Amino acid sequence: MGERRPGSPERRVARVVLLDPEDRILLLHGFEPADPESTWWFTPGGGVEEGETREQAARRELAEETGITDVRLGPVLWRRSCSFPFDGRRWDQDEWYFLGRTTQTRTDTGGHTELERRSVTGLRWWTCEELSVAHETVYPIRLAELLRTLLDEGPPETPVILASEIV
């Protein structure tokens, strides 16, 4: 993960809404390293590295964070800007969420970075129904609603711009 310097552009991020054959979504469970009681669920993904496209970054991050490499990457579903404190820094991000489909449901976190090892407790496949009744924090906000729309209507013609999230 990189830190934004004042006056610099938002960090470019590629995320994956990864669905298995049963339409379950894979989420990672994270926490603030300085406050392990502060937890949330989030989609796999991360920063775009020099010379990478967002699609290449999505595939790389998915492999590193989940061990899943057998994925059909589809269109960009959603875009959002977000800003949040994490690990003693402020992160300002421009996130693109790609649709991903896989039959590979076994995960492997061996590719996690040092920061991910300090801030991710595991992964879980969620049904839309489980997500809609969860009382835990999930990012992006309204993910259960967004997933239900995706499953009912299919991918949007053009990416949906989500409300900015500033924490």
Rank of each mutant, 00 (worst) to 15 (best):
S164F: 02
R90E: 15
F42V: 12
R54L: 14
V17G: 03
R80W: 05
R24A: 03
T102F: 02
R124N: 10
E65D: 09
C82Y: 03
R24T: 06
G51V: 13
P156A: 08
L123Y: 04
W40R: 09
F86P: 00
R106D: 15
T149Y: 05
L77Y: 00
L77R: 00
F86C: 03
P21C: 05
G47H: 09
E129A: 15
V71A: 03
E61V: 09
Q56W: 09
T107V: 15
V138G: 00
L131P: 01
T43A: 15
E130T: 11
E50M: 07
E116N: 10
L73K: 01
R11L: 15
G154K: 04
T103G: 15
S8V: 08
W91A: 12
G88M: 01
H135L: 14
V160F: 04
E32P: 01
V16P: 01
E52L: 04
R60C: 07
L77S: 00
I161N: 10
A58N: 06
G45P: 06
R54P: 06
R72H: 10
V160L: 11
E37V: 12
D92H: 13
T103D: 12
F84I: 02
R72N: 05
A163R: 13
T158H: 13
W40F: 12
R4W: 12
P21T: 07
E136Y: 06
F84G: 01
R59V: 13
T107L: 07
P44V: 05
E49Y: 08
W78P: 00
D20S: 02
R59F: 06
R101K: 12
T69M: 07
G30V: 02
R24V: 04
G67E: 08
W126C: 04
L150I: 04
T105C: 10
E10L: 14
D94Y: 10
E37A: 15
R117E: 13
S119A: 15
E50Y: 09
T102W: 02
E55R: 15
S38I: 06
W126Y: 14
D35K: 06
G100L: 03
R4V: 14
